[in-house]
């Protein structure tokens, strides 16, 4: 591709600006707008599962109560704390990047990764516990403790929702690792930290979804 020198009046343009933007600010605002549009699609996609979950809860309230008794509130609460803390370290990383503080940025991103990993470890223990008890979705449901048969559907939603969320956590960790490596190479400064900001937005959305998943799955009684 050609460089950006053909726009008159911008002699010393930074290397990150793409040729079809007039200036860096326009590029930054556009990237953020695009990210928010992407987040809107994520909200609608997860929303579909929430809608299905809510409707089926209104049809089978007993099965939902019985199903949620198999979930560990403490583990869920600890995971909530992990994700909230990871959101905090993420926003601090964005802030540090916007102040050109390379070491701090990397440190906060590393912190975010640690909290995210903690979340996944707890999720692993929760899942293996469910597998062990036969609390599996649909026709694989083999729990012998009794209760309404529609618990199988509850666990269908449980695994679909937490599974899709967990997938987003893993993707988020990969993205955070990627921007951490870029931050270590010193690619970000107060003039350009868009990728940190965008990954931050994505990560907060993952947190936001968990903020709703936690009470709806673990705390309904």
């Amino acid at each position: 591709m050609s460089s950006e020198s053909h726009v008159a009046g911008h002699g010393a343009e930074p290397s990150f600006r793409q040729h079809h933007f007039i200036n860096a600010e326009q590029q930054f605002d556009t990237s953020k707008l695009g990210m928010w549009l992407f987040l809107a699609t994520e909200i609608l996609m997860f929303g579909g599962l929430f809608v299905g979950y809510g409707l089926m809860q209104s049809v089978y309230p007993e099965a939902w109560v019985a199903g949620h008794h198999h979930l560990d509130r403490i583990m869920g609460a600890v995971n909530t704390v992990f994700l909230l803390c990871s959101s905090f370290t993420m926003v601090m990383a964005v802030h540090a990047a916007s102040q050109s503080e390379k070491a701090k940025t990397v440190r906060y991103l590393l912190g975010t990764l640690v909290f995210a990993a903690g979340f996944l470890v707890i999720k692993y223990f929760e899942y293996s516990h469910k597998f062990h008890d036969g609390l599996l979705p649909g026709t694989h449901f083999s729990y012998h403790g009794g209760g309404p048969p529609q618990q199988a559907m509850f666990f269908g939603f449980y695994f679909a929702m937490t599974g899709l969320h967990g997938f987003h956590v893993v993707v988020g960790m990969a993205l955070i690792t990627w921007i951490m490596l870029r931050a270590m190479r010193g690619e970000f400064s107060s003039a350009y930290y868009t990728p940190v900001d965008l990954v931050g937005l994505y990560w907060h959305l993952v947190d936001l979804i968990w903020i709703y998943l936690f009470p709806l799955l673990y705390l309904v009684s």
Partner: peptide, 15 residues
């Protein structure tokens, strides 16, 4: 998911 796990969200047999 319905086809592979038989979750039953859309299947009247399973409620």
């Amino acid at each position: 998911m319905e086809r592979t796990f038989g979750v039953g969200v859309f299947d009247p047999k399973l409620g």
